[in-house]
């Protein structure tokens, strides 16, 4: 990998801001542009940037492969689980109206949890694909 000091220092300075921006895009998606998909990609991009400058091993120490491989199905499970939880409250699959004390709060909770599921799957899939490509070696 590159041994460029400027890139490394700037990357280290930027990484926390990229991660905070990912969280902002995730949790502000109700009010501004964004949501689980975009936030997941941004979060994965921050780890990929780290891997490009500090090596694949460093990134794998930060986010191990087994974590990524577990996160891919967990996100879908969270999403589908919210749908099933809606069924347990007496509504249809993925109907969030009864998840909280009134339907508006129920909808907000449902959307929030569903976006978390999207974030988990998308970020880990992007990272998993990158690991798979970059780990093949020449």
């Amino acid at each position: 990998m590159l041994l460029d000091v400027i890139l490394r220092v700037i990357t280290k300075l930027l990484l926390p801001f990229i991660l905070v921006f990912a969280l902002y895009v995730q949790f502000h998606g109700d009010y501004g542009p964004g949501g689980g998909f975009q936030a997941g990609v941004i979060a994965a991009a921050s780890v990929i940037l780290y891997a490009m400058l500090f090596g694949l091993e460093a990134a794998r120490a930060l986010v191990p492969v087994w974590v990524v491989e577990k996160m891919i199905p967990i996100g879908v499970l969270i999403y589908a689980g919210v749908g099933v939880a809606g069924m347990f409250t007496g509504q249809a699959f993925l109907d969030y109206n009864h998840l909280a004390h009134d339907s508006v709060h129920g909808q907000e909770w449902g959307v929030f949890l569903v976006e978390v599921g999207v974030f988990v799957t998308v970020s880990s899939t992007m990272l998993g694909i990158f690991y798979a490509f970059a780990g093949r070696g020449r």
Partner: peptide, 23 residues
């Protein structure tokens, strides 16, 4: 839904089943 960004409410609530498929 109390969500001003209609894109999010359509994506995650009204068309939640589609987004489950996308995920």
């Amino acid at each position: 839904t109390g969500i001003p960004n209609v894109v999010t409410s359509v994506l995650a609530s009204y068309r939640g089943f589609d987004t489950l498929g996308e995920t």
